[in-house]
Design a protein around this nucleic acid. Structure first.
Length: 219
DNA sequence: CCAGACGTTGTT
DNA sequence: GTCTGG
DNA sequence: CCAGACGTTGTT
DNA sequence: GTCTGG
């Protein structure tokens, strides 16, 4: 599962890691990115990469109401090829969603204790994402996205049985954007096999309105 | 044929 | 309990 | 994901 | 838009 994440890197790191320069991009560090908010994504445009702000929570093009997006923040890797809401996006509209951490919660007594997960080296990575375009009755457009989930790996398993698909290697990220043959992606949508780190953080992160550096400090 | 759903997570 | 908002 | 709202009537 | 249920 993935319902909250972070992206705290600076612009130079972003350019080096994702091989894309976006004129005028203001990469404000984010410590609590929540569903329904705009997220920074990377997609392929011809042979180039381009960046696009999207709403997190995929609204299928045929939806009558945009509120359906609140239920579409994650898409299960196991059923991507079948689900009417995701299938065409999976085939034709994949994206990378840069991040350097994500949160999971565990009930501890009556409290919900949040934990932050990162790669062991703390470097930024990308979630595998899909997107769609929705046109409202008045003609305005919303581009929205969903984060793919898979089984949890050994680091996440103690907290939850699902985790987002993490693409850490630039080569895998490129394949995710490029493939047009299903055989090429099968290996990508697996629990992350590299080393990760996890630590408890302040419950201040529970409120999606809070977005400040203290949220990623260990408690 | 038309009507109605289309999703995930977590909890029981 | 369920939906919307962030 | 979690937090917070969830409604109508009538009055200003 | 496309699939499932009736």
């Amino acid at each position: 599962m993935c319902g909250r994440f972070t992206l705290t890197i600076d612009l130079l790191t972003f350019i080096e890691l994702f091989q894309i320069e976006i004129p005028g991009l203001n990469l404000t560090p984010r410590y609590n990115i929540a569903p329904s908010q705009p997220v920074l994504t990377i997609l392929k445009q011809g042979s180039q990469r381009t960046a696009q702000q999207m709403r997190w929570g995929l609204i299928p093009s045929w939806a009558k109401e945009p509120s359906i997006g609140y239920k579409m923040i994650n898409a299960r890797a196991e059923t991507l090829e079948e689900k009417p809401s995701f299938r065409n996006s999976f085939r034709h509209r994949r994206c990378l969603i840069p991040a350097d951490g994500f949160y999971e919660w565990r009930k501890e007594g009556k409290q919900k204790q949040p934990y932050r997960f990162t790669l062991a080296d703390q470097k930024a990575f990308a979630f595998a994402g899909i997107w769609d375009r929705w046109i409202s009755p008045d003609g305005s457009e919303i581009i929205s996205c969903s984060i793919i989930t898979t089984e949890a790996n050994d680091t996440v398993k103690p907290l939850h049985h699902r985790m987002p698909v993490i693409l850490a290697e630039p080569q895998l990220q490129q394949i995710w954007l490029d493939f047009d043959n299903p055989g090429e992606f099968k290996g990508l949508l697996k629990p992350y096999a590299g080393r990760m780190a996890a630590y408890p953080v302040s419950p201040a992160v529970n409120s999606p309105k809070v977005d400040e550096p203290g949220l990623i400090l260990p408690v």
